[in-house]
Design a protein around this nucleic acid. Structure first.
Length: 418
DNA sequence: CACCGTCAAGTCGCA
DNA sequence: TGCGACTTGACGGTG
């Protein structure tokens, strides 16, 4: 089983992709952005390897306007060596990557122009994966599309347009159930006709179920039969509803108890799980640590080093509780640890606790700083105490100081993420 | 540096 | 027929 995350990282320095608006999409500007984005992708892949994250979705925005304005800009030749180097890292580490055109790529539109653009978009996504040199188990995930008051007609059009796709696109294509139009049994029916693998998305299935009497396990098992040898392990998408937002919004983090219910229920643990969640790699590492038993103590202590100041800031009680957990000779589990982490992160910071955490970070930095920087920090702290500035301002300046002093222990801390 | 409107994309519900 | 909502993260401009 590999567990991964989509498109971007949280708390990993220098991995933020760039984009631009259409009016700035000159060849020169696009090349600058593409070069930057490829550098970011390489750093993300490095991070994934270092953290044993073996599943990752590459952002469709890696090449801005890749299926339109940049279509004839031969980025795959200009950056051939960079792309190849990234591809080698992916393959030699055993990582599996994928791409996922968004809701605006609609293959079954009655509008021919929209269909043409969808085909261009699928060609573009295929070009990215082909350029990396990765095999056909590195997939492109597509939704079926719209209904247009005639679902049968829309499905027939989808099938007809599917046959217009190039063979190299078809080799990578997989279909996913959505939360509005095509539920899991709709997708399985279409996929059976076209002999295409199916991704089961648990949250979409909760919002638009096909049959309330069937369990998630039932659909996962059905989907498993659509995956052939050349497609690699079965994949699914997993996410949880953010209870504070509208239906379909992804949760801030993957709450571990709920995830473990799914994990325990899986008959086939060889499935790969793509998490769709706001905290990205943080949840991926969490779920990996809770489902892997080798080196888990070492991995958990590393996690603790990253989470500790974010927790101190919110819940000194849980901070103490986790320290106790690690110092005890009793057996402790990753799940116990993450339950305490989650509980702390759901709490709010008091001014006093925020200052305390900031001072803990400050202790690591103050000896490396100039008098001017020290004075500035103390002034900031005073302004925060008086409610003149938000804690974010202090965190940002501490982060800059951590970068400047090359304190990797601090740079990697999730204190700066939350 | 913080804040917030805008941008891209296609569909669908509602005047 | 046309418009706004929906979604997403970064842009781009303001203060």
């Amino acid at each position: 089983m590999s567990i991964g995350y989509a498109c971007q990282t949280v708390g990993v320095p220098n991995t933020d992709q760039k984009s631009c608006i259409m009016k700035n999409a000159s060849d020169d500007n696009l090349l600058i952005i593409i070069s930057h984005n490829l550098t970011c992708l390489e750093k993300i892949i490095n991070f994934n390897i270092e953290n044993s994250i073996m599943l990752f979705r590459i952002s469709s925005d890696i090449i801005p306007f890749g299926s339109s304005i940049a279509k004839n800009l031969p980025w795959w030749e200009i950056f051939a060596s960079e792309i190849q180097a990234i591809g080698i890292k992916i393959q030699s580490s055993g990582m599996r990557v994928s791409m996922h055109p968004g809701q605006y790529t609609v293959l079954n539109s009655p509008n021919e122009d929209v269909v043409d653009r969808a085909i261009d978009d699928l060609n573009y996504h295929t070009k990215v994966l082909d350029s990396l040199g990765v095999g056909s188990e590195h997939k492109i995930v597509l939704h079926i599309g719209g209904i247009y008051n005639d679902k049968i007609g829309a499905i027939n059009r989808f099938i007809a347009n599917y046959h217009r796709l190039n063979e190299n696109v078809i080799q990578r294509l997989v279909f996913e159930n959505d939360d509005k139009s095509y539920n899991i049994s709709d997708v399985l029916e279409i996929a059976a006709i076209l002999n295409v693998p199916v991704i089961f998305d648990n949250l979409h299935n909760k919002i638009k179920p096909s049959d309330l009497t069937k369990s998630e396990g039932y659909w996962i098992d059905k989907c498993s039969r659509t995956w052939k040898q050349k497609d690699g392990n079965q994949k699914m998408h997993y996410s949880q509803q953010n209870m504070l937002k509208r239906s379909g919004s992804h949760s801030i983090s993957i709450w571990i108890d709920e995830f473990m219910e799914l994990y325990q229920s899986l008959d086939n643990k060889a499935i790969d799980i793509m998490l769709e969640v706001k905290d990205k790699n943080l949840s991926a590492v969490k779920c990996i640590n809770c489902t892997t038993h080798n080196n888990s103590i070492k991995a958990l202590k590393l996690e603790w080093s990253k989470y500790k100041y974010a927790i101190l800031e919110r819940s000194p009680i849980n901070y103490a509780e986790i320290r106790k957990l690690f110092s005890s000779k009793d057996e402790y589990t990753a799940i116990n640890f993450y339950n305490l982490v989650e509980e702390a992160l759901r709490s709010h910071c008091t001014t006093e606790n925020s200052i305390n955490a900031a001072l803990h970070i400050w202790r690591y930095l103050k000896d490396t700083l100039l008098e001017k920087e020290k004075a500035s920090f103390l002034k900031h702290l005073d302004d925060y105490r008086q409610g003149k500035i938000p804690i974010r301002t202090i965190k940002n300046s501490l982060y800059k100081m951590a970068i400047k002093s090359q304190k990797s222990y601090l740079i990697n801390s999730y204190y700066f993420v939350f």
